[in-house]
Amino acid sequence: MNRPLATRLSRLAQYGFLGALFLFIATPMLVIVVFSFDANRFPTIPWGGFSLEWHRAILDDPMIRDAFVNSVLVGLGTAVASTVLGFAAAYIDFRYRFRLKLPFVLLVAVPPAVPATILGMAMLAFLSRLGLFGRLETIMACHVAIATSFSMAIIRLRLNDLSRDLEPAAWNLGASPAAALVHVVLPFCKPALIASFFLSAAVSFDEFLIAWFVGGVHETLPVRILNLLQGQVNPKINAVGTVVLVVSVALVLIAQRFTGVRAGRRTPTS
């Protein structure tokens, strides 16, 4: 295959550009991981040599351990609740038509678009008046309000591929709508449900502003990091950061494994 030089140069430039862009995206994540093994107290060049000191330090830090446990609990609760709610919302959007549907869908879809500073402040002010301030459940509830948007989106995409005749066929065979939902729709959505579970866990695991506002004495891991970051430069930050990063990346990759969302369809028949 003999392409003209211009084409080859253009290809090279395209790949080069893409590589540079990916490097830009990857750099901060690599830096966190690399410097978590740095023996220096303050992250500076040159690297102070390999050390596991800071990783050990975070294992010994009860506040970081507590925060980690809190994050896991909140993340699990968020994952379950927002997957359930997200499925309900997606199915309603898929199956029914009613006058206030647009507002309904927007109510679920919009929360991630509101800056977290504003939302956190609003949630704190309102929920504290309901006596809900300072509980893990409140952090979870607020995270669900945000993560359900992502759950709905993932599950709704999957529902797009569900043949519109499948459920009516089940109804005609005598299945109640609920039974059809359970036996036909839910199994079909399984990959999306799993994906939504992990993705909402990731959303929760990463959120810090709202958790700071409504959590009271209960800190999640990102809140702990925010406090470490704002308090004073603390060499544990990179080590905790590596933990957070590994967990989020794992959650997202698992989610992705199940989304079935691919860039473009490979089967020409669809």
């Binding site: 994540m29 993705l199 990102p222 990091i225 950061g241 959650l251 997202v252």
Partner: peptide, 8 residues
């Protein structure tokens, strides 16, 4: 998109 913007 889903991993710690603050840390990055």
């Amino acid at each position: 998109v889903f991993s710690s913007y603050m840390l990055r």
